[in-house]
């Protein structure tokens, strides 16, 4: 039973990590690319870390919770770095794809 849960978590994690990178690769402009990695990879790595915590807890029969530390750290830092990168991109006036709406809003910032 545990094996199945672990396998499922690892697969989900790897899949979402891949989806994040696919988004990074194929979306047309920087602001859209930003969405892929910040979301997909946090859940992807989160699921893999959860699998690791479960695995070491049951294999060594000793609670292994330090994976939680990396998970929390990633969940806190991913939005912060996304915010900073978006801010930098706005600062150097990076062009958005033409169909983006409300671009005029950015001029006030």
């Amino acid at each position: 039973m545990l094996e199945w849960i672990l396998a499922l978590l690892v697969l989900i994690g790897a899949f979402f990590t891949l989806v994040g990178s696919i988004g990074l690769y194929k979306l047309p402009d920087f602001f859209m690319r930003l969405h892929g990695p910040t979301k997909a990879t946090t859940l992807g790595v989160g699921a893999i870390l959860l699998a690791s915590a479960l695995y070491f807890t049951f294999i060594t029969e000793q609670t292994s919770l330090h994976e939680v530390l990396v998970t929390i750290f990633l969940f806190i830092t991913a939005p912060v770095s996304a915010h900073l990168m978006a801010k930098a991109a706005l600062h150097i006036k990076l062009k958005q794809i033409e169909r983006t709406q409300n671009v005029s809003e950015t001029e006030r910032f």
Binding site: F31, T38, T42, P79
Partner: peptide
């Protein structure tokens, strides 16, 4: 709030 917006459906806080 900005962090939450970045982590939830299809939105990223920019500035």
């Amino acid at each position: 709030l900005a962090n939450t917006i970045s982590l939830t459906p299809g939105t990223v806080s920019c500035d």
